[in-house]
Design a protein around this nucleic acid. Sequence first.
DNA 1: CCTTGCATTATGCTTACACATAACTATACA
DNA 2: TGTATAGTTATGTGTAAGCATAATGCAAGG
Lengths: 236, 236
Amino acid sequence: MLGELTQEKTSFRDVKAEILRRITDGPWGPGSLLPGEVELADEFGCSRTTMNRALRELSELGLIDRRRKAGTRVRMAPLREARFEMPIMRAEIEKTGATYRYALVSHTVLEAPEWLRAKLSLKPKTPVVHLICLHFANGVPFQLEDRWINVAALPEALEQEFTNVGPNEWLVKTVPFSEVEISFHAVAASNDAVTYLDHNLGDPVFCIERTTWWKGEAITFVTLSHRRGHRMTTRY
Amino acid sequence: MLGELTQEKTSFRDVKAEILRRITDGPWGPGSLLPGEVELADEFGCSRTTMNRALRELSELGLIDRRRKAGTRVRMAPLREARFEMPIMRAEIEKTGATYRYALVSHTVLEAPEWLRAKLSLKPKTPVVHLICLHFANGVPFQLEDRWINVAALPEALEQEFTNVGPNEWLVKTVPFSEVEISFHAVAASNDAVTYLDHNLGDPVFCIERTTWWKGEAITFVTLSHRRGHRMTTRY
DNA sequence: CCTTGCATTATGCTTACACATAACTATACA
DNA sequence: TGTATAGTTATGTGTAAGCATAATGCAAGG
């Protein structure tokens, strides 16, 4: 008697999974038109709301295309996107079981050079903090961080030492909700990379550049250079 | 905000936007505990369902953290992820207004070399198709594609010419729902890169490697090398 | 002091229903 | 023949209600 009460309802997860199955190796190949929500809900023995959620999430995944009146179609070329969590170095390194160490290499305050002014739309003579830091994994230098912070937008940066806490962690705490442009590319090892990352001059280095704005104002620009052979990987 | 005379109902979008505002420049800083769904729904004049959807989507965005009983908290370090649409070269290039051209450089069928067998878990003597192709933007070589296709898993590949249609487009049509591992790194220009991409030997080259499985079986492995100075960029 | 377990509570999910809106279709009218 | 318009239909989004489930804290019992 009581056992009957724990009767499971059809969850949107189950529905989603089954529809996904029918799309990937079942009868609903690319381009095909799915039955309407009502019909499907009926077939699966769930409410339209539940079916709607399942389909909505599949649509967010980029597998199906939904249009009013037109109905729900399986995408011809499911546009799946790769996602990368923007790593905080400490977390990234400690996740692998390695021990993390941070070191500040240099710390200067100066007027923004021209290229930086152009990049961040800074006024002439804007003071900036320039930092060079190293991130170690198990004692081996792993990432070289070359960072510029716009003091006009973030005067607190002047009071920071950055000797124990890296600028990244400090910035994430201080300006948590920023807008970001990120770009990946390969460059020849600079002098700094040679000195600190055990490269030879001209070696290919995997670089990440990140510019950060807050309320329309540029906060910081950083170049992250990686140790030889570094890869950035994800699955989906 | 609420004073709309037209009987509009409060949409989950509005709710979401306002909550986001309160998080980013309002009173709900990182770490703070939000009121419960019921209370919020009451304040915003919407149903709990609507509030739930708004909060759920913010949680999917990585801005808040929700736990039963514990309540809803603003994340200390909002873990936002960068997203890259995995480009189909033709679309990517034509999007910029440039004209796209594809060329097949070489096409061979052979037994999988040892390193490939290891990478894709292939049996000894598995035949593979090896292709080298070029993608041009406005007549300039833009991307060099070095692709291996597992014939055991995809015998149709043997019948394809790949002279007009690139392997990527063909594969997307043929095996649309695959599992993918993708990785970015920098390497020194290989002979092929020198020959086809106008590099000098040893130049840093931005590389994408992609391995694709379908139903647990490796389908294809591809290395994409890019022209000098290429960047992969996204905003979020 | 430490466990065990119950009550509480906030989120998670489902149902049933209703109306909104976009887009396709058919029909009417100039 | 071409265009305007109304009807139809599938998805989009909202409300109210209820049970499910996880996490927390308090209390009883050893």
